[in-house]
Design a binder for these strands. Structure first.
Length: 674
DNA sequence: ATAGTCGTAAACATAA
DNA sequence: ATTATGTTTACGACTA
């Protein structure tokens, strides 16, 4: 008999922020159409290269045009971000453009497009050059046109005076007409190409836009300026991206340029960008465009620095800033281009946000778990039990259902619907009453926990991992990589609402597991004993993980090779995703971490498997280094080197304040942590 | 059909 | 004596 109710140091641990971002009204996320299913590859055909270039040029110009208009309007009223609510006049144009896009191109398409580097920096450069050429051409044409017109008028006047109509005049007139036609044709062409561009997702311009006016063309840019512009836009952007914009924005520049930014790449690689809602709306400097209602804090001004993308000019006071703004960032092509880029950034972010919101909503709806919801179901487990998303669900749901007594409150989403709604990576709910832990199914525990931390904390959902995995995780998350039994208990209760009840049961299970599995090593300590993890042993039992999926392994390996460069960064930043627990994880694209660790863990598992279990026979760098359990306590031994450093960081999150928290005692779970 | 894994329950031991 | 901590056994569900 274990009566853990004995030690009830009610310090209630907790930082259980039931942050559950509750009712976010999901935005209608534009249709999630397949990315350019019909292989009309945006890629430029060699033969049609010129045409494509012209198209791009024109597209760019149109974009500039739009932005110019926008800017003109904004000059007075200030900038308005194309964010959700504004339908203000100031934004009219851009908004329509921005809002348009989702329907025209899906995010996926966008990603693809960008990934394909349809507009790679180089390409854009070329593009710009060509644009310059074109503009010059047009300029010449226009000038000529003007001259002709002037001439014509002069002649007209003269002739009116003279009262006669010489042939010359007619000639001039027809000439002019020809030019006009020429120009018109050009415009039409431009529009045409624009449309095709749009179709290809190269440009996000509203088709209904009026014919390309000639005026803006006339004031085309100076080549040099264009170059500079591009440079600036690019560099500024990349810089920002790398400085912590996690938002996987898909703007042209960054996506193409900054291969170093893990977020982006991974997002692209990620089949289902799953995030846990929470995709914080926090856009680093990108808010530059967002409008500020507060007169004083100009979104483009902060900390005495101009926040215009890539500017960073120092301005002592607001006045000088305004001055600077008007002089340096006046309505010109550069600003326009930058604006455009910014627009895309925002747009993508919004798309992403919308998507994630929708996802979250679906998750919530599906699980029917609301932190506010009265716990009608006494058996928390059952609540999710039928949500089986993992394997078992897909194969045969029938068997799983009968077991669940409490299905009433169970998820709404029919099981048959499958994992489509909830991304398989993020939401591995337990199986039937007798969970089939996804533990083995390529879901890295660490990332899953990190990602769904809030969820687990608030919803009494059984984490889809075995006790062993959870215990290991708890231990690895600790600073010393070692925990006392009680600390393990605390970790369980702290991290999972599910483990705040039936303490006797699961605590027994924990102890049972600790004793049973060789991977848990008990180490005598000054003040008792602590438990550590023998990673080698732990991994030994993992080969089963990927059991039947050679292709997956293959993919993993290949993809691993591909993302090796970013792996380091990923690992560092994500640090198993568990560090800043919900902070970083939620900030960026949690999926990243998931992906990263998934890859890593999977790989380890796979390799382990193929390496013939045991006996590190691998010549090169075997994922595991045979270490004797004895050593365990001495040095954390990094069986998976990849994870070694990570774990170190991981521990950081284990703030001392958590250590105090006491158990949530069993039976009378006063779930007042809502 | 079978072996292995996992969760649960419980008996038992031991130290504080 | 009580409690926390460990160990061990048994058993059923489940999977490969």
């Amino acid at each position: 008999m274990m009566q853990e109710s004995g030690t009830e140091t009610k310090s209630n641990g907790s930082a259980i922020q039931n942050g559950s971002s509750g009712g976010n009204h999901l935005l209608e996320c534009g249709s999630l159409r397949e990315g350019r299913s019909n292989g009309e590859a945006p890629a430029v055909d060699v033969g049609a290269a010129d045409l494509a270039h012209v198209q791009q040029q024109q597209a760019l110009q149109v974009a500039r045009q739009l932005l110019l208009q926008q800017q003109q309007q904004q000059q007075v009223s200030g900038l308005k971000s194309p964010k959700r609510n504004d339908k203000q006049p100031a934004l009219q144009v851009p908004v329509s453009v921005a809002m348009m896009t989702p329907q025209v191109i899906t995010p996926q398409q966008m990603q693809q497009i960008l990934q394909q580097q349809v507009l790679s920096p180089q390409q854009l450069q070329v593009l710009l050059q060509q644009q310059q050429a074109l503009m010059l051409q047009q300029q010449q044409l226009q000038e000529f046109y003007k001259k002709q017109q002037e001439q014509l008028q002069l002649q007209l006047l003269q002739q009116q005076h003279a009262g006669k109509q010489p042939k010359e005049q007619q000639q001039v007139a027809t000439q002019q007409l020809a030019f006009q036609q020429q120009l018109l044709q050009m415009q039409q062409l431009q529009q045409q190409h624009l449309l095709s561009l749009q179709r290809q997702g190269l440009l996000t311009i509203q088709p209904g836009q009026p014919a390309l006016p000639l005026q803006p063309l006339a004031q085309g840019m100076i080549p040099a300026e264009l170059q500079q512009l591009w440079k600036e836009v690019t560099s500024a952007h990349t810089a920002e991206e790398t400085t912590g914009n996690n938002h996987s924005s898909l703007d042209l520049t960054t996506t193409c340029v900054s291969s170093s930014a893990p977020s982006k790449t991974s997002l692209i690689m990620n089949p289902h960008a799953s995030t846990n809602g929470q995709l914080s709306v926090h856009t680093p400097k990108r808010e530059s465009l967002s409008h500020e209602e507060h007169s004083h804090s100009h979104p483009l001004y902060g900390h005495g620095v101009c926040k215009w993308p890539g500017c960073e000019a120092v301005c002592e006071d607001f006045q000088s800033f305004l001055k600077h703004l008007n002089s340096e960032h006046a309505l010109d092509d550069r600003s326009t281009a930058q604006c455009r880029v910014q627009m895309q950034v925002v747009q993508q972010l919004e798309l992403q946000l919308a998507k994630d919101k929708e996802r979250l909503q679906a998750m919530m709806t599906h699980l029917h778990v609301k932190s506010t919801e009265p716990k009608a179901a006494p058996q928390p487990l059952n609540l999710v039990s039928s949500v089986t998303l993992s394997k078992s669900a897909s194969e045969a749901s029938p068997q799983s259902l009968p077991h669940t007594p409490t299905t009433p409150t169970a998820p709404i989403t029919p099981v048959t619907q499958g994992p489509s709604v909830i991304t398989t990576t993020s939401m591995h709910t337990v199986g039937p009453i007798r969970r089939r832990y996804s533990d083995k199914y390529n879901v890295p525990i660490s990332s899953d926990i990190a990602q769904n931390q809030e969820f687990y904390k608030n919803a009494e959902v059984r984490p889809p991992f075995t006790y062993a995995s959870l215990i290991r995780q708890a231990i690895l998350e600790s600073p010393e990589k070692q925990l006392t039994l009680n600390e393990i208990y605390n970790w369980f209760t702290r991290m999972f609402a599910y483990f705040r009840r039936n303490a006797a049961t699961w605590k027994n299970a924990v102890r049972h597991n600790l004793s049973l599995h060789k991977c848990f090593v008990r180490v005598e300590n000054v003040k008792g004993a602590v438990w550590t993890v023998d990673e080698v042993e732990f991994q030994k039992r993992r080969p089963q993980k990927i059991s039947g999926n050679p292709s997956l392994i293959k993919n993993m390996q290949s993809s691993h090779a591909y993302c090796t460069p970013l792996n380091a960064a990923l690992q560092a930043s994500m640090a198993e995703n568990s560090i800043p627990l919900y902070t970083t994880a939620s900030m960026g694209n949690p999926t990243l971490g998931n992906l990263a660790s998934a890859i890593r863990e999977e790989l380890n598992g796979a390799m382990e498997h193929t390496n013939s279990n045991e006996s590190d026979s691998s010549p090169g760098r075997s994922p595991m280094q045979a270490v004797h359990p004895v050593h365990v306590k001495e040095e954390p031994l990094d069986p998976e080197e990849a994870e070694g450093p990570l774990s170190l960081v991981t521990t950081a999150n284990h703030s001392p304040d958590f250590d105090h928290d006491r158990d949530y005692e069993d039976e009378p779970v006063n779930e007042d942590m809502e």
